[in-house]
Write a protein that binds this DNA or RNA. Structure first.
Lengths: 200, 200
DNA sequence: TGCTTTTTAGCACGACCGTTCGTTTCCTGT
DNA sequence: ACAGGAAACGAACGGTCGTGCTAAAAAGCA
């Protein structure tokens, strides 16, 4: 890895942590350059525009999400266990990934849902990736015989995502300690409803 | 209502619609003054600081939320019907309230959850109000004999909020037409699980 | 080593930011 | 109609924004 790639990576690390606190649009090149210990223009040269920087940061965040949430969950067997692992990993992935300010992608989704352009496209693509991934895990649970074959996968993903979103809001805004427990309870209820009939 | 109050109100209307698109922190006094057709300093005088403006906007948004979502739902009888009305009103309240850019309070919740200060406090207080209100409606449904007496009210509110959050993200970011249907389906499942036993 | 390419710094730019101040215009009550 | 106060304005402030341009420094390679 050449010098360029190296500093680019440290910039992205710093940018990710900064933007987790103040958001993707709040991220400013000057402030980021200070954090990274280099000049504005030197940093700028790595990306060419602020938009490119924002997109690069989101991509970096997504990769770290995969590394922190998805990959470890693959060690669980296919089915509900893996879904549960995804949930629990997801619930505190920002802490484990050293992003004290919350999920950058989620923040970006709220900031850019009304601002057409490449950044919004990147956010949409990123979240769509997550949905596909989740849908796959649900289908595996069906194949494993743990969830009903006639399940509406998209509906399951919808409700699963809702649990994650409200848990994050509760723990981030209200600093509630039991948000994760509530999320798990909701998950178990969700699974119970969509589980294969044990006998009527 | 004196002249001052009058223009202050038109400013807040304009500010609310603007901030629904670009967020509370993205709201700039210059841009807002242009929209309102007055000078920066003239507008500024009404609030004294940007922070005060932001808080005033959030308060205005909250009142409009009550007028658009809560008040109409009170026409429904206490119980599940009223809860369902709250949900359906909530799902498209930003359209009916002429806020094309989504719920300002939710946007602010994501922007300010890491930025201590009066604005964050206002957001937290506002959302806490909503939770209390929702919890009350749930308790009325219990009293009406439609939900189990041993229900965990906070848990119900938690899951209800999750449904709303994911529905909004889906309709705003993915422009999905069936987000509302999915939300209603999820709601009915929620209610079914917590309904009084019809007979075992 | 020297040479070429890549990477970084310095500086300046126009634009916009929130805010202050002094002035002018408008409204209101008598 | 007029005085007094409220409301709006225009100009300016110190800053920061993103973005170019040019030169120096560093890195990679012969």
């Amino acid at each position: 890895m050449g010098k360029g790639e190296e500093t680019r990576q440290t910039i992205l690390d710093e940018a990710l942590s900064l933007c987790s606190r103040i958001g993707v649009s709040g991220l400013s090149i000057g402030a980021l350059a200070d954090k990274a210990g280099m000049s504005k223009s030197g940093l700028f040269a790595h990306f060419g525009s602020k938009e490119e920087l924002q997109i690069a940061v989101l991509r970096e965040g997504q990769q770290r999400f995969v590394d922190t949430v998805v990959r470890p969950a693959l060690k669980q067997p296919r089915g509900v266990a893996r879904l549960r692992a995804i949930l629990t990993n997801w619930l505190d992935w920002t802490r484990r990934a050293q992003l004290p300010g919350g999920c950058p992608m989620n923040a970006a989704a709220n900031e850019f849902d009304d601002q057409p352009g490449p950044v919004r496209d990147a956010v949409e693509a990123g979240l769509a990736d997550g949905r596909r991934l989740l849908a796959n895990a649900v289908r595996l649970a069906v194949e494993a015989g743990e969830l009903r074959p006639d399940i509406d996968v998209e509906q399951f993903v919808f409700e699963f995502t809702g649990i994650v979103l409200v848990a994050m809001q509760n723990q981030r805004l209200f600093r509630e300690k039991d948000a994760n427990r509530r999320a798990l309870d909701a998950f178990e209820r969700l699974v119970r409803d969509y589980a294969v009939q044990q006998k009527e």
